[in-house]
Simulated scan of single mutants.
Amino acid sequence: MNTPFECGAGLGLKPQHYDDALNCDARGLWFEIHPENYMVAGGPRLAWLEAIRERHALSLHGVSMSLAADRAPDAANLHRLRELARRVQPAWVSEHLAWSAWGGHYHPDLLPFPRNGAALSRIAANIACVQDTLGQRIAIENPSHYLSVEGHEWSEQAFLAELVRRTGCALLLDVNNVYVSARNMGFDAKEWLDAFPGEFVIEIHLAGHSVDTQTQPPLLIDSHDAPVDDAVWALYRHVIARFGARLTLIERDDHIPGFVELLAERARAQAILDDAEVTV
């Protein structure tokens, strides 16, 4: 990570919070954006982004690279990402271990795949393509799971560790995704986290979730529309105790409250990080 800023806990940057974000002086505060919202040649959004970048570190968290797809990342999309990265100089870039495009068709979701040898080779090649184009390594995020997929040859933790070995990428651990998946799929979230290769984690995501009662049994949905659940906070403390302090982001993408409320939730994560830095 190449940044002159001290980073601790961060927030997703929302347009309605630009002024508050620009003027906030909380220690260690940084902001994440979805680059797809800023891949333009100019305009007010980029002007605000460049102003905020003067005071706070930024990360780019992609949602459309479709790394697990059946072909290389879209060249035009990757070019736009590279141009944005050159313009705002993010401290780091991340993407999901999932696919959203297949056979030339786009699906507005982050979809699962069987973790087999063919998928491993394909995804490693796609990660290498992105990293070579950007000229920096990226971090790969574990997804949420809602149904069983047949054909797995690797555990998710081992699959991610092998991607790191083959490509030199880093990992982004989404603790809420683990909790949601554990509840939906019937495994123990703490045991899953204990098997995660924490030495490769550069960032952690925390978010709220919701319950879809129209399914039987009900599913937890990684909706990012609520405060972080107490059970997720408990898992986060467990992770930090095991791995040590890591850059942490509070995600909120719907039912977005005022900046002060988000900053208070962010302060809760920062306090846990501060305690870890003292005790580890």
Rank of each mutant, 00 (worst) to 15 (best):
F5Y: 14
L11D: 08
G12C: 11
L13E: 08
A26V: 11
P35W: 08
Y38K: 01
V40L: 12
A41V: 10
S59T: 15
L60T: 00
V63A: 13
L67H: 07
A69S: 15
A69D: 07
Q89G: 00
G103M: 03
G103T: 11
H107C: 12
D109E: 11
N116W: 10
G117A: 13
A118W: 13
A119I: 02
S121G: 10
I127R: 10
Q136N: 08
E141N: 05
N142S: 04
H145P: 00
V149I: 14
W154K: 04
L160A: 05
E162V: 04
R165T: 12
G168S: 07
V178T: 15
M185H: 08
G186N: 07
E191W: 11
E191L: 13
W192S: 12
L193C: 09
D194V: 00
F196S: 01
F196M: 02
F200G: 06
F200R: 08
V211H: 00
T213D: 00
Q214T: 01
S223C: 07
S223W: 02
A231Q: 14
L235C: 13
H238S: 12
V239C: 14
V239W: 13
A241L: 05
F243T: 14
A245G: 10
G258N: 07
R266E: 04
R268P: 04
E277C: 14
